[in-house]
Amino acid sequence: MTDLFDPPLQVDDEFGPRAICCLMDAIEFLEEWPFEKRCKVHLKASEACCAAYDGRQPIDAARVAFRSWVSVAGVRTCISVQLDAVERAGVFEIC
């Protein structure tokens, strides 16, 4: 079983942009979220990701739950685009 998010989710919080590439990335991101900002959707996303990590639920369900929480929590998401040459040149940033 693979626990990879395909494609990865690009999120941007107060610590800067990062890629959520797998279930453990999602679980860590959820666990790092401040307690005072957590809600029922956060709890459900955490439960879904942990259940998928344990093999009790499909990874797609965990990804949907995580994306739903990201939307409700107001976490910024970045567009994932493969423009390596442009990014290396520092021409622009997509976010």
Rank of each mutant, 00 (worst) to 15 (best):
R88L: 12
E36D: 14
E47Q: 15
L43Y: 12
F5E: 05
A65M: 09
S80W: 07
Q82H: 12
M1F: 11
P8T: 00
A61W: 01
T77C: 08
W69K: 04
K40W: 11
I94R: 05
A73W: 04
V41A: 09
A61F: 11
I20M: 03
A51K: 05
D25N: 03
I59P: 01
F35V: 14
R63S: 05
L23C: 00
F5S: 07
S68M: 04
A62Y: 06
P7W: 03
R63W: 02
R67S: 15
A48K: 04
L43W: 14
E28S: 10
R67K: 13
L4I: 10
P17L: 02
A19L: 15
S80E: 14
R56Y: 15
E28D: 12
T2D: 15
E28V: 10
V41Q: 14
A73I: 03
V91Y: 10
C49N: 00
V41M: 07
D3G: 15
F29E: 06
K44H: 15
A73N: 06
C22N: 12
I94F: 07
S46I: 09
G55E: 07
C39W: 05
L23A: 12
W33Q: 05
C21M: 14
P8H: 09
T2I: 10
L83E: 12
A89C: 10
L83N: 11
I79P: 03
L83A: 12
T77R: 12
G55Q: 05
H42I: 00
Q10F: 11
G16E: 01
A26Q: 03
A26R: 00
E14T: 10
A85W: 01
I79L: 14
I27R: 05
V86Y: 07
Q57C: 00
K40M: 14
R63G: 06
S80Q: 08
Q10M: 13
W69D: 09
A62H: 02
A19Q: 13
E31G: 08
I94P: 04
L30F: 03
A26I: 04
D84W: 11
Q57Y: 03
K37G: 03
A73G: 06
A19I: 05
V11L: 09
P17V: 05
A85E: 11
A85P: 02
P7V: 02
I94G: 04
G90M: 02
L23F: 00
E87R: 08
I94C: 04
A89W: 00
V11Y: 06
E93P: 10
R18W: 03
L83P: 03
A65D: 02
R67M: 13
Q57H: 08
P7D: 01
E31I: 04
Y53S: 08
E14K: 02
Y53K: 09
W69T: 03
I20R: 05
D60H: 13
E93T: 14
F35K: 15
L4T: 09
F29A: 04
A52M: 03
V11D: 00
L4Y: 11
V91C: 06
C21W: 07
D13H: 02
S71H: 10
E93I: 09
A85S: 07
C50K: 15
I94D: 01
V75C: 06
R88P: 08
I79V: 12
F66C: 06
F15R: 12
D84Y: 06
P7G: 02
